[in-house]
Design a binder for these strands. Structure first.
Lengths: 336, 336
DNA sequence: ATCTTATTTGCAACCGGTTGCAAAGCACAT
DNA sequence: ATGTGCTTTGCAACCGGTTGCAAATAAGAT
């Protein structure tokens, strides 16, 4: 069907190795030979087969991109950045969707069977079972947007969620709010829990302030809205930190339908800086993760891990600062 | 490193073919042999290498999943469905992001070099260059959510955008609106233009109605909002069809900030039924594409194309009906 | 022209599997 | 014991490449 190395060699009247060498950079071929081979290859439309090559080179340039987060629009952006960045380096993402009930061991074995060079896990809610299973196949791997503390001997890139939670509390306190609420995602999400820990730590240093907390059922608009509707049966806090934008936007909708003015009656801050947080009818003050840097750094980390031998590689955590994006749902800094 | 066929054969004291056969379904192996081999394989943690196997079987089970649509949240759902559905059939999506300036020929060659079994193009805005380049590598391919008319000799799955445009016009007319506006995405998007053609066709049958049209700069919230703000400098139409939800939601925000009540002052209808179209503070009446069926059908089509020889395969178009999702941005059907 | 050294080339083995074919093994009938 | 037909097994070639090594060629030094 498609032309092979052998076809090219025959047509050019040279050995197969010669052809192979013209298509391998750094190999020793004379100019004359190279021209002869390239001519034959062009005429036949020959392209080397990456998979056959991988058998001897032990490099497929395939990277498993594993996620279970296919509902939060934030992750479309994450996938966009990951795919472009990997492609720039000649790496190819094999996308693996582990939402639904997938067996961790099967998934890990599948990745090994496809000889992926490395694995990127992009999710903050990946189960422990996957972490263990992936580790067993001994592939270079990096966890992105994942929990900092859970696997100390593995590459992690993201923000420090505890620090981000603490920062959120400091911002709200800095605006002079006295009755402050934390509204998280589901309690099984490590991202939410880490943010909660940081948030609580700061609040506990201010016993003069009133601190309440609650958790939405899921990382979704509806869950955020429902939870806020529940909270609004009682007099609300003066300001809330919603541990994710999509939840905060749900909460905002609940506030509006209760006739509450934001930020005049109640303040609200999110986290993630979704594109729609900037929409004119939402205009959510939020904390931004530097996604581009996080992704770039993850890809760079996996790319260098591919070069090193397994023993040489020392896993690292790369934590980035999150920063406030001021919009219209918090009152301005307290002056005086 | 990892155990190979040869390792297992030696440990079990049998030939390599015997091992190969135990891991190939439908091959002839006695029970005794199978047990012996499986024991050895277990002890060594052996798993067959898919890529080596593909060399002789000529099947990688890799499917190129090509898209340039990484900003519309609608596509996160599309990717979710595609990956799960492919995985269910043991197929693996190699995700290719062709947004940005990618050379069509390079992309097509890359897919050939990775020996993908087939290609799914999931986008309504793919350039002609890609269609041509993909065709040249002679891989089974299906275009999903793509233009119906552009390539008659290629598999296409999606809705009939012209019909959907016509349907939209009929709905608005049926609600008794007399001054009707079409608001499209960018004029280079085939989806928008096809919808516009259908919409116009119906409107032209009603010369007694006033019909205006305009196009937003992009498929984005901001573009929709900007375009609507521009329109609102003059007295607006009674109702608009925004050819995509994200544009419509932008337009909705513009209407609100002009103090217009929807649907009392002006009606609005979108297309796609994004999750957020159902959010309480948006509540957009819209036209839904049956995404799940479209994706399932695409995967089924590519799966059967893989079985057939190239000559036997006859390309087909599978068009699904789109249907109205009634929410709160259109007045109820006109009675009397 | 001759010797030394560096560069280019081809041979053949290998990467990790599959598969057509013929030999071997088996069950059963004669 | 012999023959028949069916299943199981191993041999060896192949899939499409790469690569260590030695032979062949080219380049440079004398």
């Amino acid at each position: 069907m498609a032309a092979t190395l052998k076809d090219v060699a025959e047509r050019a009247g040279v050995s197969r190795s010669a052809v192979s060498r013209t298509f391998t950079d750094g190999a020793s071929v004379s100019d004359k030979m190279r021209r002869k081979v390239e001519k034959a290859a062009d005429e036949l439309g020959y392209q080397p087969n990456f998979l056959a090559r991988s058998l001897t080179t032990r490099r497929t340039k395939l990277i498993g991109l594993v996620s279970d987060n296919f509902t939060n629009p934030f992750f479309l952006h994450v996938f966009d950045l990951f795919t472009s960045e990997l492609q720039k380096r000649g790496l190819r993402p094999l996308l693996v969707n582990i939402s639904g009930q997938h067996d961790p061991v099967d998934t890990a074995q599948m990745l090994r069977q496809y000889s992926v060079d490395g694995v990127i896990v992009a999710s903050s809610t990946v189960e422990k079972g996957f972490v263990d299973a992936f580790r067993k196949v001994r592939l270079p791997e990096v966890y992105t947007l994942s929990r900092h503390s859970c696997s100390p001997d593995v590459n992690i890139v993201g923000i420090d969620n505890e620090a981000a939670g603490a920062f959120a509390a400091e911002v709200l306190i800095g605006r002079g709010y006295k009755r402050i609420g934390f509204m998280g995602g589901p309690e099984i999400a490590t991202s939410t829990m880490d943010r909660f820990v940081g948030f609580s730590r700061v609040m506990s240093r201010h016993p003069e302030l009133e601190f309440t907390h609650s958790f939405a059922e899921a990382y979704s608009f509806d869950a955020g809205r429902d939870e806020m509707l529940r909270l609004l049966k009682d007099p609300p806090a003066e300001a809330y930190f919603g541990a994710d934008d999509v939840i905060s936007i749900g909460a905002l909708s609940a506030m509006h339908s209760h006739g509450l003015k934001v930020p005049d009656d109640v303040g609200l801050m999110g986290l993630n800086d979704l594109e729609m947080a900037g929409w004119a009818n939402i205009n959510l003050t939020t904390i931004r993760q530097p996604v581009r840097q996080i992704v770039d750094s993850s890809v760079e980390l996996i790319a260098t891990a591919l070069e090193e031998s397994e023993e040489d590689h020392v896993p690292q955590a790369r934590l980035f600062p999150a920063k406030l994006v001021e919009r219209g749902t918090l009152r301005p800094p307290h002056t005086g």
